[in-house]
């Protein structure tokens, strides 16, 4: 591996911080767009961008498993959100009317400012210690062991929940008892 030495040295020095800023530059505008875009479906797609950037952050933290799980789950999950948004909204109506009254807007702004202040103060008060633990290469194994030892009970609960969801999905997908198709009806007198 010695021929990669130069590159890796340079990379270790710069790429990580560069990537961090790049991902932030993707994530923050995307997050704002999720909030401010008028078309609900487009904000759904921006949400995918946000989660993609966050999974990139996980990747540079060496947490590959988390990053990939994030992509797999959220990419598909948000597609569902988008589909549901598509089904529940009327694109034409949305363009014509705005349901938000100006008075409501002031209240909203106040709440938002208060929320931002709270979060900001909370973040400031935290000391954020830098962990000295090195991420190990076999972190998938670590996760697996942790899930089946320390966190066995929550893991099982989650499994049962997922199983219930799966069965529910199957039940929903199950077709009705065969309807006798009768196109005659009242057609023939």
């Amino acid at each position: 591996m010695e021929q990669f030495e130069l590159l890796t040295n340079w990379a270790q020095a710069n790429v990580e911080s560069f990537m961090l800023y790049l991902l932030a530059a993707i994530a923050i505008p995307c997050a704002f767009s999720v909030l401010f875009d008028r078309a609900i479906i487009r904000s759904g797609f921006f949400l995918i961008g946000v989660f993609g950037a966050i999974s990139g952050l996980f990747l540079i933290l060496q947490a590959q498993f988390l990053a990939l799980a994030q992509i797999m789950i959220y990419a598909v999950g948000i597609t569902l959100v988008v589909v549901i948004a598509l089904m529940l909204t009327n694109a034409r109506l949305e363009k014509e009317f705005s349901s938000i009254e100006p008075t409501e807007r002031i209240g909203g702004l106040l709440v938002a400012a208060l929320f931002f202040l709270t979060i900001y103060l909370a973040l400031r008060s935290e000391s954020w210690p830098v962990s000295s633990l090195q991420m190990r290469a076999d972190n998938v194994l670590q996760i697996g062991v942790a899930l089946l030892t320390n966190y066995a009970l929550p893991f099982e609960f989650a499994s049962v929940l997922l199983l219930a969801a799966l069965m529910g999905a199957i039940l929903l997908a199950k077709s009705d008892p065969k309807e006798t198709e009768n196109v005659t009806g009242s057609l023939v007198e």
Partner: peptide, 12 residues
Amino acid sequence: FFVLAASSIPVV
């Protein structure tokens, strides 16, 4: 896992 994650994106 990486490959599977990549292959789940095209649907978006």
